[in-house]
Design a protein around this nucleic acid. Structure first.
Length: 914
RNA sequence: GCGCGGGUAGCUCAGCGGUAGAGCAACUGGUUUACACCCAGUCGGUCGGCGGUUCGAUCCCGUCCCCGCGCACCA
C-alpha cells in the first residue's frame, strides 16, 4: 500500500464507533506473515536476540497459563525488534510421552475396544502419528490467534527426524562417557500408565489413611507376640523380616529370634536396624524389601529375600497367595485386615494422615517397584550450580535460584527409561544369543557390556541378529536439548546462547535445570542468559487451573469475546511478578453471552478508548503540511507538558523493561494514555481544533497529537500488537506502508532540543491549571451543578500567564465564563476556593446556601489544621530537624508555610460568611 | 521438619523509609460535536497481630497467626 493510498484511506474510510477486534486481528496476522516480519535472519548484522518457546504438548490446547507465558515472550520479542535487534523466537511442540500415549490408548479403547498390545507396537505408533497429525496443529493455531510473532517457518517437534537424531546422539554420548547405565533399582512405578517415573513426576499428597496394628507370633515362644504398626497390610505377604532399633530395650532380647508371618505362613528373622524409629508406632517395622525404598535398603544390608507380591498394574500376584491373586492393592488392604482380624492378629486400627506419592499424569498412587531401568548420572552439575549463583544465568525473580541450587545439590541419578511406545526408542541393541542374559544383568554399562551390546544412532549392520531395547526415553530427556537441538549451524552461531527463557516455576527441575546442564555438556555454553518465571494463574478461589476441576476458561472464548489484544493486555496488568494471580470469572445469567471476565473487560475498554481517540484524530482530517514540531514559543503549555510526559514514559518504560516489570509497564501505558492523554491533553486542545480556530495553531496541535499518538503506538505495540498496527495504518503514520512492528524506536527524546527550564515551567503551569480544574469541578458537584456548563467563576490571581489560559480552563471545568477580577468583593456565602493559580469564586446570585458553604469550609479547615499540627509537631522535634535530611526538613517547612497561609485564607472566608 | 512467597479499600492488584494508590464494584449527577466498552464527582483503608530499630515504619528487624508453594519424611 502506497503513501497516497494511505492518505486517501485516511480521508475516506471512517473508523467505526466501537473497536471490533476479530477482523482486525486476523488481517494483521496474515499481513505480518506475508511481510515475513517474524522471520529471523542468521546472516543479519543486527544484534541478536533469541528466545525458544517452552514447547507445549503437541496434542494440548491453549490455557490461560500459555496466554500469560507467550504474551510475555511476544512482548520481549517485539520490544527487541523495536530496539533494532534481529529476533528469533523459535516455536514448536513436544511429544509428551505419557500424556499423548494415554490419549491415543483411550481413543483406541473407545473406538475399537482394543488395547495397545492387541494391535502391536508398529500399528500403535501409526495411530499415534495420525493422532498427532490431527491434533498437533491446534495449539499452534491458537498461539497464532494470540498474535505470537514466532518464526513459524522454524516450527520444531521433539520427534522430528533431525531432532530425534540429536536425542539419540545424546544418549550414545552419555553411554560412551559412562554416565548412562542400566540397573535393577527401586523406582517409582505408575500402575496406571505401566511405566517407571522419575522422582520429579511423583507428587506427594497428604492422605487420610489408617494405621493397622497387628501382631506376629514369636517362633518358639507360644503366646508371645510382636506388635507392628503399618499403613500397608496388603504387602505383608512380601515381608521377609521384622526389624527393631538395636538400642530399643523393649525388644533387645528378641533380636536374632524369628517371627511368624501369618500368611503365607513363614518364619522370618527379627533383625536390628538403626533406621527404625522407636518412637513411631510400636517401634517394630515389618520389612518388605520389594515394596518400600527404605525396606529395600534394609533388605540389601541384611541379605533378605525380596518377595514381590504385586503385578505391574497394582494387582496382587500368586506370591501373595491364591485368595489374593489378581485382587487390586486397595481392595486387598481391607481383605488382609479382615483376615488378620479373623485370626485374632489385628490389634486395632487408627485413623492416620500420611503422605502418599501420586503419579503426576495419571493421578494414582505410585508403587515403589524394583525394576530394570536406564539411569543417567547428571553432567556438569557443579558448573550449572555456579552459573546461576554467579548470575551468569539470571533468574527472575531471583529467589528461584535458591530452589534451583537446593535441588541441584541433592540431585539423584535420573531414571530416563519409560515403558512406553510413544517417544524416542532407546538406541540400544542386544545380540540375540545373549539378550536374555544382558537384559537381566544386575547392572550394565560401557565397561561391562562388551561386544554383545550395540549402542549407536544407527542399528547394527546385521540387525536381524539383534534385539532393540523396548523402552523409550523420558520426554524431558529430549526437551532438555531444546535450546540448541532446534537450531541448524548458522542459526546457532547467530542466536545461541539465547537471551531469555520464559517459563513457569513448576518446571524448574523438569526442564530449566536440565537444559542448563545439557547446554554446558553439549555446547560448552549456557543455553540462555535470563530465566523469567511467570505467575501461576489460579481461579477465584485460589485453586490452580486444571482440566479436571473445569475451572479454566477457554482462552479462545475470551479472545472471541474481548479480542486477543484485550486478553493479552489484561493478563499482563493483573499478573504480578513473582507471585500467583487470581483470574475472576463471573457467572452470567444471560447464557448466550457466556461468562463475564471483569479483568478482561478492562483490556477491552482500554482498546476501545485507544480506538476512539484515534477516531477523534481522524475526524480532524489529515495534516500533511506540518510534520515537524515547531519551536517552543508556538507550543502551548499543554503541548509541552504532554510531550514531556511521553518522553518520561519512554524513559520509564526502558527502565521497567530492563528489570522485566511487565505489570508495571502495562500500568504505565494505561495511565499515560487514559489519564494524561485522553482526560487532560485531549480535552485541553478541543478549542484549538474547532473549525473556527486559528488554522496555524490547529495544525500545530495536530502535529503534537500525531507525535504523541505515533510515539505511543510504538510503545504499546508489544502489548497490543493488532490494534496498534491497525491504527498506525489508518492514521497513515507509516511511510509507504511500513509496518509498525518493523519500526525502530527513536533514540532521541522528543524535547531534547528544548530548554529544560522552560519545559519544566510549562509543566508546572499545566499542573496548576489541572489542579484549579479539579477544584472547580469539585465545587460544582457540591452545589449539584456538575452538569451545568454555564457556571461563572471569578479569579483573583497574581500570575499574568493565567489570562491566556482562561479559555482552556473554562472548557476543562465546564464553566460558562471565568473572569479575572482582583478587586472582586464576594457577597457573603459565595463559594470560594484556593488554587495554585489564585483564589477562585463561584458566585451564585441568590442561590447561595450559607450554611452549606460554612460546613464545607469548616471541613477543609479541620483537614488543614490536622495536617498543620502534624507538620508543626514534626518540626518542633529537634531530633527531626537535626537528623532528618535537609530536603525533608525543608519540604516540611514549606508545607507549614503554605498550610498556614491557606488556613488564614480559609478563616477569612469563613468570617466573610457571618 | 526445612525453605520460599503472600496477607494493603467489598474484589483484583500497585506502592516497599518521608502526609496511603489504580481499575472494578457501590453511590450521586450527566449523551458537552472520540468513546455509556464513556464523562464528572463521592463513599470506602488503626497497610494480618504484637514487640523492636529510627527523628519518622505499610515499607527494615524479631516474633506470632492465617493462606499458597517447594523439598524432605516414620512404617
Amino acid at each position: 500500500m502506497g503513501f497516497f493510498q494511505v492518505i486517501s484511506d485516511l480521508m475516506s474510510v471512517e473508523i467505526s464507533k466501537a473497536y471490533e477486534p476479530t477482523k482486525v486481528e486476523e488481517k494483521w496476522f496474515s499481513k505480518w506473515i506475508s511481510a515475513k516480519a517474524f522471520h529471523a535472519d542468521p546472516s543479519s548484522d543486527k544484534e541478536d536476540y533469541g528466545i525458544v518457546i517452552p514447547p507445549p504438548n503437541v496434542t494440548g490446547v491453549l490455557t490461560l497459563g500459555h496466554v500469560l507465558n507467550n504474551s510475555i515472550q511476544d512482548i520481549l520479542a517485539r520490544r527487541a525488534r523495536s530496539k533494532g535487534k534481529e529476533v528469533l523466537w523459535l516455536p514448536g511442540t513436544d511429544h509428551a510421552g505419557i500424556a499423548t500415549q494415554s490419549k491415543v490408548e483411550r481413543h483406541l479403547r473407545e473406538t475399537e475396544g482394543k488395547g495397545r498390545r492387541d494391535i502391536g507396537r508398529e500399528a500403535f505408533l501409526e495411530r499415534a502419528w495420525e493422532w498427532k497429525e490431527k491434533h498437533g496443529g491446534i495449539i499452534i493455531k491458537q498461539l497464532q490467534k494470540l498474535g505470537c510473532s514466532c518464526d513459524w517457518g522454524r516450527e520444531r517437534f521433539t520427534m522430528d527426524e533431525e531432532y530425534s537424531l540429536e536425542v539419540q546422539k545424546c544418549f550414545v554420548h552419555f553411554f560412551n562417557s559412562g554416565k548412562i547405565y542400566r540397573g535393577k533399582r527401586m523406582v517409582n512405578w505408575c500402575p496406571s500408565s505401566l511405566t517407571a517415573l522419575s522422582d520429579e513426576e511423583v507428587i506427594m499428597k497428604p492422605q487420610k489413611s489408617k494405621l493397622f496394628y497387628m501382631r506376629y507370633e514369636i517362633v518358639g515362644r507360644e503366646g508371645e507376640y510382636l506388635e507392628i504398626a503399618t499403613t500397608r497390610p496388603e504387602t505383608l505377604m512380601g515381608d521377609s523380616a521384622v526389624a527393631v532399633n538395636p538400642k530399643d530395650e523393649r525388644y533387645a532380647g528378641l533380636i536374632g529370634e524369628r517371627a511368624l508371618r501369618p500368611f503365607p505362613e513363614a518364619e522370618i528373622p527379627i533383625i536390628a536396624d538403626e533406621h527404625i524409629d522407636p518412637e513411631f508406632g510400636t517401634g517394630v517395622l515389618k520389612v518388605t524389601p520389594a515394596h518400600d525404598k527404605a525396606d529395600f535398603e534394609i533388605g540389601i544390608k541384611n541379605d533378605l529375600e525380596i518377595i514381590d507380591v504385586l503385578n505391574a498394574d497394582g494387582t496382587l500376584n500368586e506370591l501373595a497367595g491364591e485368595e489374593f491373586s489378581g485382587m487390586d492393592r486397595f481392595e486387598a488392604r481391607d481383605h488382609v485386615a479382615a483376615k488378620l482380624d479373623d485370626m485374632g492378629l489385628l490389634v486395632r486400627v487408627e485413623d492416620y494422615e500420611n503422605n502418599v506419592g501420586f503419579s503426576e499424569r495419571a493421578d494414582v498412587p505410585v508403587e515403589p517397584r524394583i525394576s530394570m531401568q536406564w539411569f543417567l548420572k547428571y553432567p556438569k552439575v557443579e558448573e550449572s550450580i555456579a552459573a546461576v549463583s554467579d548470575h551468569n544465568i539470571q533468574f527472575r525473580p531471583e529467589r528461584w535460584a535458591k530452589t534451583y541450587s537446593h535441588w541441584m545439590q541433592n540431585i539423584q541419578d535420573w531414571c530416563i527409561s519409560r515403558q512406553l511406545w510413544w517417544g524416542h526408542r532407546i538406541p540400544v541393541w542386544y545380540r540375540k544369543d545373549r539378550a536374555e542374559e544382558l537384559q537381566s544383568a544386575e547392572s550394565l554399562d560401557k565397561e561391562t557390556a562388551g561386544d554383545a551390546l550395540h549402542v549407536g544412532v544407527n542399528p547394527p549392520q546385521d540387525v536381524e541378529n539383534w534385539i532393540q531395547d523396548d523402552d523409550v526415553l523420558d520426554t524431558w530427556f529430549s526437551s532438555w536439548l531444546w535450546p540448541f537441538a532446534t537450531m541448524d549451524d548458522p542459526t546457532r552461531q547467530k542466536f545461541y546462547p539465547t537471551a531469555d527463557l520464559v517459563t513457569g516455576p513448576d518446571i524448574i527441575f523438569f526442564w530449566v535445570a536440565r537444559m542448563i546442564m545439557a547446554g554446558y555438556e553439549f555446547t560448552d555454553d549456557k543455553p540462555f542468559s535470563n530465566v523469567f518465571f511467570t505467575s501461576i494463574i489460579r481461579d477465584k478461589k485460589g485453586r490452580k487451573m486444571s482440566k479436571s476441576l473445569g475451572n479454566s476458561p477457554d482462552p479462545l472464548d475470551l479472545i472471541a469475546k474481548y479480542g486477543a489484544d484485550a486478553l493479552r493486555f489484561s493478563i499482563m496488568r493483573i499478573a504480578p511478578s513473582g507471585t500467583d494471580v487470581r483470574f475472576i470469572e463471573n457467572k452470567n445469567k444471560d447464557e448466550a453471552d457466556g461468562n463475564d471476565y471483569p479483568q478482561v473487560e478492562e483490556g477491552r475498554n482500554f482498546a476501545n478508548k485507544l480506538w476512539n481517540a484515534a477516531r477523534f484524530r481522524q475526524m480532524q482530517g489529515s495534516n500533511d503540511e506540518v510534520k515537524k514540531l515547531p519551536g517552543f514559543e508556538k507550543l502551548s503549555i499543554y503541548d509541552i507538558d504532554i510531550l514531556s510526559k511521553l518522553d518520561s514514559l519512554n524513559e520509564e518504560l526502558s527502565e521497567s523493561y530492563s528489570s522485566y516489570k511487565f505489570q508495571e509497564i502495562a500500568n504505565k501505558l494505561y495511565d499515560f494514555f487514559w489519564s494524561e492523554f485522553c482526560d487532560w491533553y485531549l480535552e485541553s486542545i478541543k478549542l484549538s481544533l474547532r473549525d473556527d480556530a486559528d488554522q496555524e495553531r490547529r495544525k500545530i496541535v495536530l502535529t503534537v497529537f500525531d507525535t504523541i499518538l505515533s510515539g505511543y503506538l510504538m510503545q504499546l505495540h508489544p502489548y497490543m500488537p493488532h490494534i496498534t498496527e491497525e491504527l498506525w495504518e489508518k492514521l497513515g503514520f507509516g511511510n509507504d506502508g511500513e509496518l509498525l512492528m518493523q519500526r525502530i524506536l527513536p533514540k532521541e527524546k522528543i524535547l531534547s532540543g528544548y530548554d529544560k527550564n522552560l519545559v519544566q515551567e510549562a509543566s508546572n503551569k499545566t499542573s496548576a491549571i489541572h489542579e484549579a480544574t479539579t477544584k472547580a469541578r469539585h465545587i460544582k458537584a457540591q452545589y449539584n451543578l456538575a452538569a451545568n456548563r454555564n457556571v461563572k467563576f471569578l479569579l483573583q490571581t497574581q500570575s499574568n500567564w493565567v489570562q491566556g489560559e482562561l479559555e482552556v480552563l473554562k472548557l476543562l471545568c465546564g464553566a460558562g465564563e471565568i473572569v479575572i477580577d482582583n478587586s472582586y468583593e464576594p457577597s457573603p456565602g459565595t463559594p470560594t476556593f484556593l488554587t495554585q493559580i489564585g483564589k477562585m469564586f463561584m458566585p451564585l446570585e441568590g442561590l447561595v446556601d450559607i450554611e452549606a458553604e460554612k460546613t464545607r469550609i469548616n471541613k477543609e479547615i479541620q483537614k488543614v489544621e490536622k495536617d498543620l499540627k502534624q507538620t508543626v509537631g514534626k518540626l518542633s522535634n529537634p531530633k527531626f530537624t537535626e537528623r532528618a535530611p535537609q530536603e525533608v526538613v525543608q519540604e516540611n517547612l514549606d508545607r507549614k508555610d503554605s498550610m498556614k497561609k491557606k488556613l488564614e485564607q480559609l478563616q477569612e472566608m469563613l468570617q466573610n460568611l457571618s
